[in-house]
Amino acid sequence: MARMKFLCDSERCIECNGCVTACKNENEVPWGVNRRRVVTLGDGLPGEKSVSVACMHCSDAPCMAVCPVDCFYHTDEGVVLHDKDMCIGCGYCFYACPFGAPQYPQSGAFGQRGKMDKCTFCAGGPEVDHSEEEFKKYGRNRLAEGKLPLCAEMCSTKALLGGDGDVVSDIFRDRALKRGKGGEMWGWGSAYGKPEPGTKKPEVKS
């Protein structure tokens, strides 16, 4: 049985935010909710790294462990989903998640929190597949169409990979072996230039 996973290759991610846009558009995510976002480390400095982050569909999910109403479940494909009809919007899952995946729509005046919303791996939710109800609550169910999440499928540099964990890790391993690592990596010298002898490395601001 496939175990669905995301993998973001930080050497390839160019911070184009295409994955974020694709997710928003495909799932018609409400304003203020970002199921996926791109995080950049060392922004503007040589060797900056960007990573696309969303729910990682953990095998031992902390959100699931802390939920007081047990509204989370694992599908057979390893996707972490939740029943919005049971969610009470308490925010515990947000505190527990190391990736900041759970999001809350503002549901009224005074910053009231709505029911939690998060990446579904484009697998919909506990409603009839392709029903209006499912789309409204959870977004598109691409998995039931035999497709992978749109964020990964439309990534222009193929930095974001999604799908069966074994397949994804094979693709990444093959890629990493071919390109090498660090300074020996293909394209590194063209992008950042070779360090001249005697030059000091720029200090990284913390």
């Binding site: 494909e77 989903l81 597949d129």
Partner: peptide
């Protein structure tokens, strides 16, 4: 234990 609606297979 999860006691919400059941989800079908894809």
């Amino acid at each position: 234990s999860y006691s919400g609606k059941t989800d079908g297979k894809p």
